[in-house]
Amino acid sequence: MSKLVSDANAVTWDEKSFDPPLLEAGNAALRWLGPVISLGIFGAVLYQLRGLQIGGVAAMLPRSPLFWLAFAAYYLAAPLFDLLIFRRLWHLPFVAGLGALTRKFVGNEILMGYIGEVHFYSWARSRLKMVAAPFGAVKDVAILSAVMGNVVTLAVLAAAYPFLHVLHLGVAPRTLVAAVVITLGSSLVLLLARGRVLTLGERDLAFVAAAQLGRVVVTALLPALLWHLALPQVAIGWWILLAAVRLLLSRLPLLPNKDFAFAAVAVLLIGRSVAIGDLMAMMATLILATHLIVGAALVLAEFAFPQQAAE
Score class of each variant (00 low, 15 high):
Leu66Tyr: 13
Tyr74Cys: 11
Val95Tyr: 00
Phe86Thr: 02
Tyr114Arg: 09
Phe67Trp: 15
Ala28Cys: 04
Pro93Glu: 04
Leu61Arg: 08
Pro65Gly: 07
Val36Thr: 09
Leu101Asn: 03
Ala28Leu: 07
Ala77Arg: 07
Ala77Asn: 06
Met60Thr: 11
Gly113Asp: 09
Arg88Ala: 06
Arg63Pro: 07
Ile54Thr: 14
Gln53Asp: 14
Asn27Trp: 01
Leu46Glu: 08
Ala29Val: 13
Met60Ala: 12
Val106Met: 00
Gly97Tyr: 01
Ile54His: 07
Leu98Gly: 05
Ile41Cys: 09
Ile41Arg: 05
Pro35Ala: 02
Ile54Lys: 05
Arg87Glu: 10
Leu83His: 05
Gly51Trp: 03
Ala29Arg: 13
Ala96Val: 10
Leu101His: 02
Phe71Asp: 04
Ala70Tyr: 10
Ser64Gly: 12
Arg50Val: 12
Pro35Gln: 03
Arg63Gln: 14
Phe42Tyr: 14
Gly113Asn: 14
Ala44Gln: 14
Leu30Ser: 05
Asn27Lys: 13
Phe94Thr: 14
Arg103Val: 12
Trp90Gly: 01
Glu109Pro: 00
Gly107Met: 01
His91Asn: 13
Ala77Lys: 07
Gly107Val: 03
Ala78Pro: 04
Leu39Ser: 09
Gln48Trp: 06
Leu46Trp: 12
Ser38Thr: 03
Gln53His: 12
Glu117Lys: 03
Lys104His: 10
Val118Lys: 05
Leu39Val: 15
Gly43Lys: 00
Lys104Tyr: 08
Val95Asp: 02
Gly56Pro: 11
Phe42His: 01
Gln53Glu: 11
Gly56Ile: 03
Arg31Glu: 13
Leu69Glu: 08
Met112Ala: 13
Pro93Asp: 06
Val118Gln: 04
Ala58Gln: 07
Gly40Gln: 06
Gly97Asn: 00
Tyr114Phe: 13
Ala77Trp: 05
Gly55Asp: 06
Ala59Pro: 02
Arg50Gly: 03
Gly26Pro: 12
Gly97Lys: 00
Ala25Trp: 08
Trp32Arg: 13
Ala78Ser: 11
Ala96Trp: 09
Ala29Leu: 13
Pro93His: 04
Arg50Thr: 13
Leu98Gln: 02
Thr102His: 04
Arg31Phe: 07
Ala58Glu: 01
Val106Ile: 15
Leu76Ala: 13
Pro93Gly: 07
Val45Tyr: 12
Pro79Glu: 01
Leu92Asp: 01
Gly43Thr: 01
Leu69Lys: 05
Glu117Pro: 06
Tyr114Pro: 01
Leu84Met: 11
Val45Phe: 12
Gly113Val: 12
Gly56Thr: 09
Gly99Cys: 12
Tyr114Glu: 00
Pro79Tyr: 03
Ile37Leu: 15
Ala72Tyr: 08
Leu101Thr: 04
Ile37Lys: 07
Gly40Thr: 10
Asn108Met: 05
Trp32Met: 08
Asn108Tyr: 08
Ala100Asp: 06
Arg88Glu: 11
Ile54Asn: 06
Gly26Cys: 10
Leu111Asp: 01
Asp82Val: 09
Leu46His: 06
Gln48Cys: 02
Arg31His: 13
Phe81Glu: 00
Ala96Leu: 05
Leu33Thr: 15
Ala28Pro: 10
Arg63Leu: 15
Leu61Thr: 10
Leu69Val: 15
Asn27His: 12
Pro35Met: 05
Leu89Cys: 04
Leu84Arg: 11
Tyr75Pro: 11
Leu101Ala: 00
Leu84Gly: 09
Ser38Pro: 02
Ile41Phe: 05
Tyr75Ala: 05
Met60Asp: 12
Ile41His: 06
Tyr75Thr: 06
Met60Glu: 14
Leu52Phe: 00
Lys104Asp: 04
